Computed example of a mutant assay.
Amino acid sequence: MMTKKALVASAALVLLGSWTLSLAAAPGTMAPAAPVPKLGASLDPAAAADDPQPLPALPADIRTKAEALFSESETVGQTRALLVLRDGDLVYERYAAGFGPDTKLISWSMAKSITAVLAGFMVADGQLALDGPAPVAAWQRSGDPRGAITLRHLLHMSSGIEHVENGDPIWEGDTVEMLFGAGAADMAGFAEAKPAAAQPGERFNYSSATSVILSDILADTLTPAQGATARRDAMREYIRGRLAEPLGMTSLTPEFDAKGTMIGGSIMHATARDYARFGEFLRNRGVAGGQRLLPESWMRFMLSPSPNDAGYGGHIWLNRRRPPGARAALWPERGPNDLFACIGHQGQYIIVSPSQRVTIVRLGVTKEDQFPALRQRLADLQAAL
């Protein structure tokens, strides 16, 4: 008979494989996409649909660096989608066979940055406070050190809660247990029940469970109802009205647990073009279609180094040197300081370089030992632009 740990690990592998397929057939040989619509700096999806245009010719050295992300699969893993935008216009778009512009692909931890933007809307509306105590009922007992945790601490991954992102072996970590094990039915309850291991703000501890706590706070802010359907509907409607429709991200599909809490740390789906629209929204510092949707002050917060890890901002990765011993997220030794990225498991990237007016989306499946080579190729492409 399989042990509990083996069952959890087996279920995790099955579901990981299922989500990795991301609603598309398994790819075979890779082929460039057909001519595609110009997105335009305003990211107006209606305009894009009305005026299909071929992509502009790219210099040979840039095209070579882009296509290396497909041809060097043994080194960098399988690239399923690669988009490059300059000034909001597509200059390169390619998919692996079996994938295309309409394929929804999993975000993994890129979802964290989307969750941060949703939190920003609520702070801007006065519904939440960045530096007030996080409204989590389980932490409000007298003497509970978790009562001092703020939204800022959660967004900086410095809550002090005893979360373990990746265990050794993997099923000993909170992420697998929360997504596939005992915590799956009530992910926020699982994450919020963990004890304090440090003072809030004392140390950096990257954790998908932290982002689920944020998602729970967002749902509780939107509706007092505790039913799963009501919580899901409230969150979906909020995302549709505040983010998806204004940006044209019509494919964006968040997933929810059985309690109706959005899995805001790791499981959303969208097309590569819609991930690019999100990247452009960030590049334009919260402006879409000529309208400011997110305050400049929130963008400054998200893109400022956190106190305990300069390579991380408000639920987003920055091109800054990380503390000694921390694995590189981007390439601060090469790229500009203003470069930042949403990064997800297995090599999902939305890379934004404001000074170059460039957004890059790379989606695929990369193994742990392939990440240095993948970062190198992405850095090469970014530098060539």
Rank of each mutant, 00 (worst) to 15 (best):
F278I: 04
C342Q: 11
G28F: 10
L43M: 14
W331M: 08
S142I: 12
A379F: 01
P336D: 05
V361A: 03
P195S: 13
G28Q: 12
N205F: 04
T29L: 13
S306R: 06
M157V: 05
R240V: 03
A41G: 09
Q127F: 12
P324G: 09
N308R: 15
P305T: 06
Q356I: 10
A185I: 14
A111G: 07
L381N: 00
L385D: 03
S304P: 00
V212Y: 02
Y92E: 03
T115F: 13
S297F: 09
M122F: 12
A341R: 02
P101A: 15
A148L: 14
W317I: 03
F70P: 00
Y95F: 14
R80S: 02
T75Q: 14
W139I: 04
A96T: 04
S42A: 15
R152W: 08
V14E: 12
R320Q: 14
A57W: 04
F70S: 01
S355G: 08
I350V: 15
S266F: 07
A66F: 02
E202S: 13
M249L: 11
A81W: 01
F204H: 14
V76I: 13
A272K: 05
Q199C: 11
A184D: 08
A209H: 06
A328N: 09
G98A: 11
V352R: 04
A341C: 12
L23M: 14
E172L: 15
R357S: 00
V176D: 06
A373F: 01
P324Q: 12
V287I: 14
G147R: 05
L330V: 10
A47M: 08
S107L: 09
V361N: 00
G17L: 10
D233A: 07
V91C: 02
A276I: 02
Y238G: 04
E245A: 14
L378C: 04
V91W: 02
I170Y: 10
A228G: 06
G290F: 14
P37E: 11
I351G: 03
M235S: 11
V164T: 14
G347H: 01
A48S: 13
G126H: 09
G313N: 08
R283H: 06
P224K: 14
R80N: 08
N308E: 15
F301H: 06
A119N: 00
G120I: 00
I316F: 05
I114K: 01
I114Q: 06
A96V: 03
G40K: 05
P45I: 04
D89A: 00
Q370C: 01
A196V: 09
A47Q: 12
G98E: 04
P224G: 13
S215Q: 05
Q370V: 02
I343N: 02
P37I: 10
P332H: 12
L318E: 00
A66Y: 04
T3N: 08
G264M: 04
P59W: 01
A310M: 14
G181I: 03
M157S: 03
T229C: 10
I351F: 12
A25G: 14
I350Y: 05
L318D: 01
D338A: 01
A310H: 13
D102C: 09
A310K: 15
S71G: 11
E177H: 12
Q370R: 04
T261S: 13
R152T: 03
R94I: 01
L105F: 10
R377M: 01
L43A: 10
A137K: 15
E72I: 01
A138Q: 13
L55D: 02
D89L: 00
